[in-house]
Design a protein around this nucleic acid. Structure first.
Lengths: 100, 100
DNA sequence: TAGACATATAGGAATGTTCCTATATAATGC
DNA sequence: GCATTATATAGGAACATTCCTATATGTCTA
């Protein structure tokens, strides 16, 4: 099991930004009406706006991060909220450290 | 200072393989006539053969890893030996862990 | 200096990534 | 049901990456 899929997911300025913003969503995003920034995650349009890309592009980045387990998506009403999966990230951090 | 150049350098199965082989060169490469595998590093053709790519392709991968500081090149006679820069790698490991 | 060997560079084909617009799907509220 | 809002998917343009072959450069040895 290689970590190449993970390093490929991390090989993007914008995806690294998303990951860092989601460490402290309240510091980087306005409050949401439905769904708590920390509890539920951040909705796609907020991330798209802050990233300065279209909604489909943001969706693609978020899906890519979720595919390798860094983020988890949660559908609430018509929104999809993304948040970090800290347990998985801890594992990934260790795997990357070992690969280096 | 983003770590994106580093994650891009790591976003390749073959470059990750090179990095791991160079952790213990004697376990992965035959002895060299000129230059010690551990002291001096491993020459380009040995890496190209083991990787199953042409010499120019191996050179490109090695240069890419050296560009971000993971490897160091040492020219000895007509050979170029590549070895890990463990000090830089420790720094990079910490930077990646922090970015995640 | 000529020939041999190791590495580097140049150029180009195939593939992958990034991003957009247009449109489909899903869920809400009237 | 119909309009609205949020997200997902499709398709394609621009660019980056990967890999090759051909060739240039550098270095050793006879």
């Amino acid at each position: 099991m290689s970590i190449a899929p993970i390093t490929r997911a991390l090989a993007s300025e914008k995806r690294l930004l998303i990951l860092s913003w989601l460490k402290d969503p309240r510091a980087h995003f306005p409050p949401q009406l439905d769904g708590d920034l920390v509890e539920d995650g951040v909705c796609v349009v907020l991330i798209a706006e802050k990233l300065g890309v279209s909604q489909p592009t943001a969706t693609a980045h978020l899906q890519r991060l979720a595919e390798v387990g860094l983020l988890r998506a949660k559908r609430v009403k018509q929104w999809t909220f993304y948040k970090r999966d800290e347990t998985a990230i801890a594992r990934i951090r260790a795997a990357v450290a070992e690969a280096l």
